[in-house]
C-alpha cells in the first residue's frame, strides 16, 4: 500500500492480482486497499481515458502511437486492455493488440490484459479496481475495449473521457448511429487518414451525425483525422485529449462525471449482488443515489460494503 501511494511501479502487478482474487481473505484485503487508495487519491489525479471502436478500426495501433507520443512528453502510461472471453471454455486470448514495438521493455508503460468475463461482453467486476490502482502510479490511464455494445457503455462509466476510433468507410458509422452508441464518446478519431478522401468523408459524416453541444459545456465534440501508420494527426489527438480534460476540470464537468461514475459503480455492483429486489428494499435507485451523494468522503468500495450491509439487513427483516 505504501509502495502504491509512493507511485512505485513494482507494486502494481501484485496489487492488480489482489483485485482479481476471489478468495474471501484476499477479497477483504483488496477492498481495504482500494478503499484507502480512493480516499488518499488527490483530485483530479491522472486522466482516465477509454478507447473503443469496431474491430479492425485500428484501436491498438492508434493507442500505440498515442502512447509513444506521451512517452516522448515524459508521461508514464498504464493500459487496461480488455478482450472477450470464450463462451465455451471461459478461456481468452489476450495481448494480440499492440502491434508496433513501443511499450514492452519500457518501464514507463504498463499493460495489463484482461478478459471480459461475462458473456455479454461486459467488463469484469474488477476493471474499476484496475483503473484505480493504475491511476495511483501512472500519469495517465487508458482502458481499451474490443468492439462496441455493452462494454462501451461500461467503459464510459469508468473513465473521464471516451475516445471512439472510427474506420474510414461509411457503413458502420451508420450502424453505430442506429445503435445509439455515438452518444457516449467525447472525442472521435477517424483512423487511417492516409487513405485520403474516404477518411475525410467518414469524418464529415460523423461530424454531421453528431449534432452540437453534446458536452456539458456546450462545446461541440471534435472529430479528428489521424493515421497510426504514418503518425499524421497523433499530436492533435493528444493535444485534444489534454484540452478536453483541462476544460472539463475548469468547468467542473470532470468532478461531476467522477461523482456520477462513482454512483453508477456502487449501484451496478449492488444490483448485481442483490438484484433489483435488493435495490427496491432500500427505496429504489434514486434513494440509493441520494445516500451515496450524502457520503462524499467514503470510497466507492467502502460504500458498496456499507450499503450492502443495509440491504442485507432489510432483506433479512423482510424474510421475517
Amino acid at each position: 500500500m505504501r509502495r502504491l501511494l509512493g507511485r512505485d511501479r513494482s507494486a502494481v502487478p501484485e496489487a492488480l492480482n489482489l483485485t482479481d482474487d476471489r478468495r474471501s481473505e484476499q477479497r477483504a484485503r483488496a477492498l481495504a486497499m482500494l478503499d484507502e487508495l480512493e480516499r488518499e487519491a488527490a483530485f483530479p489525479g491522472p486522466p482516465r481515458v477509454g478507447v473503443t471502436g469496431a474491430p479492425g478500426a485500428g484501436k491498438s495501433t492508434l493507442l500505440d502511437a498515442i502512447v509513444r507520443q506521451l512517452r516522448q512528453r515524459g508521461e508514464t502510461v498504464g493500459i487496461a486492455a480488455i478482450d472477450p472471453s470464450s463462451q465455451v471454455s471461459g478461456g481468452a486470448l489476450l495481448g494480440d493488440r499492440v502491434r508496433v514495438r513501443s511499450g514492452s521493455g519500457d518501464p514507463g508503460v504498463f499493460i495489463r490484459s484482461m478478459a471480459a468475463r461475462d458473456q455479454l461482453g461486459g467488463l469484469a467486476d474488477s476493471t474499476r479496481a484496475v483503473v484505480d490502482v493504475m491511476a495511483a502510479v501512472f500519469d495517465r490511464v487508458f482502458v481499451e475495449t474490443v468492439g462496441v455494445g455493452q462494454s462501451e457503455a461500461d467503459v464510459a462509466d469508468l473513465v473521464d473521457d471516451l475516445l471512439f476510433v472510427a474506420q474510414p468507410g461509411a457503413g458502420d458509422t451508420l450502424q453505430f448511429m442506429k445503435a445509439g452508441v455515438l452518444e457516449l464518446p467525447d472525442l472521435f478519431v477517424v483512423n487511417k487518414s492516409d487513405l485520403g478522401a474516404v477518411a475525410q468523408r467518414t469524418a464529415s459524416e460523423l461530424s454531421a451525425g453528431l449534432g452540437f453541444g453534446q458536452h456539458g459545456d456546450g462545446e461541440p465534440r471534435e472529430v479528428l483525422l489521424a493515421s497510426a501508420r504514418d503518425g499524421q494527426g497523433i499530436t492533435s489527438v493528444v493535444d485534444s485529449l489534454d484540452a478536453l480534460h483541462s476544460r472539463q476540470l475548469t468547468s467542473g464537468a470532470l468532478g461531476e462525471r467522477r461523482r456520477r461514475n462513482r454512483e453508477t459503480f456502487v449501484l451496478a455492483t449492488l444490483e448485481r449482488r442483490y438484484g433489483s429486489f435488493g435495490i427496491e428494499s432500500v427505496g429504489g435507485a434514486d434513494a440509493l443515489r441520494q445516500r451515496i451523494q450524502r457520503r462524499e468522503a467514503a470510497s466507492a468500495y467502502g460504500l458498496v460494503d456499507e450499503l450492502g450491509q443495509v440491504i442485507e439487513a432489510e432483506l433479512a427483516a423482510a424474510q421475517k
Partner: peptide, 30 residues
C-alpha cells in the same frame, strides 16, 4: 489457441521478443 480452449487466459504477443520484454510482460500481466 489450445490453452484458450481449455479455459486459460492466454497472453500471446507474437514473435521476436527479448527475454527482458517477456519477463516484464509476465510480471505486469500477473
Amino acid at each position: 489457441v489450445m490453452a484458450r480452449d481449455v479455459g486459460m487466459e492466454v497472453v500471446y504477443e507474437g514473435i521476436r521478443l527479448t527475454p527482458g520484454e517477456i519477463v516484464q510482460s509476465a510480471l505486469d500481466e500477473g
